[in-house]
Design a binder for these strands. Structure first.
Length: 270
DNA sequence: ACCACGTACCGCCAGT
DNA sequence: ACACTGGCGGTACGTG
């Protein structure tokens, strides 16, 4: 695909690839451009079978023209919000929010809010831990927990609203140590029961599951980026021994640590 | 692959 | 009435 952006986009697959996609992301485009009927068909089918559909910026117009937003709440770039509302009266357009989730359709505003929306989706599908890791790697602020509300109005600057940010931060810095609920609860000034309950309510996972996930990610990163031995990697990531680490690799990644490192280095050199 | 042990988890419930 | 807390017990799960 040629673009006017100074680079071309290499598209390896055709539209048929969307037939069983879990997520279809629709980028910004020219608002006045017609949407190809085939694209409309693909989008409608995807919506009907329950796939995630996510638009960024003026991509909301594509969804609107495909009829996916009828009767729904949506948003778009503030520059286009008024027009979207005028052209599609049956859409409840909110011009102030970063993104809106309605059913399995997520619309987002300007470019950066697309990142928020994507992180939001990752949090839903893979959990807050994964979203935090992605956010960290992208060097964007960690996303606020959504609560029950569909809307996440604005990025949150204050740390104090995210009561678990401090604890999880501390946990990440002490991954290699043995962390118990009792200690974490003490550190968070809560009883163990309340800590566990609120942790799950806020982050979507239990403390133990979150810890395991972080340890796994740390181990993966060490396997990717260092040449440490497996025992050292296990120690660094908090698994203690290579046997325990192997156990978790098998359980959630369906590989072994050695195989993972080999596959990764092969992929790099290829 | 298996077992034994301890911790984490969660539903329940009484108390605030 | 309501929301939240925190202890208890059975069960699932991680660890060795």
């Amino acid at each position: 695909v040629r673009t006017s952006l100074g680079y071309d986009m290499m598209i390896a697959d055709g539209l048929e690839k969307a037939a069983d996609a879990d997520l279809i992301a629709v980028p910004a485009h020219l608002i006045d451009a017609d949407v190809h009927p085939e694209v409309v068909r693909v989008l409608r089918e995807a919506a009907e079978r329950g796939a995630w559909i996510l638009s960024i910026c003026s991509g909301a117009f594509t969804l609107a023209k495909a009829g996916l937003l009828s009767g729904r709440s949506a948003t778009t770039h503030w520059m286009h919000a008024e027009r979207l509302a005028a052209e599609f009266p049956d859409i409840s357009v909110d011009p102030d929010v970063l993104f809106v989730e309605d059913g399995r359709i997520i619309t987002s505003a300007g470019t950066a809010s697309g990142i928020d929306a994507c992180l939001h989706l990752i949090r839903i599908e893979l959990g807050a831990a994964a979203a935090n890791v992605v956010a960290r790697r992208m060097v964007v602020p960690p996303q606020r927990a959504g609560g029950q509300s569909q809307y996440i109005a604005a990025p949150v600057k204050e740390r104090c609203t995210d009561s678990f940010a401090e604890v999880t931060e501390w946990m990440l810095e002490h991954l290699e140590e043995e962390l118990t609920i009792d200690e974490l609860a003490r550190r968070a000034l809560m009883s163990p029961r309340t800590f566990a309950r609120r942790f799950k309510a806020d982050l979507g996972t239990t403390p133990g599951a979150w810890l395991n996930r972080q340890r796994l990610l740390r181990a993966q990163q060490l396997l990717e980026e260092s040449s440490l031995g497996l025992d050292a990697v296990a120690a660094e990531s908090g698994f203690g021994t290579a046997a325990v680490m192997r156990h978790h690799f098998a359980k959630t990644l369906d590989t072994t640590p050695a195989a993972y490192r080999r596959a990764f280095t092969v992929r790099l050199s290829a």
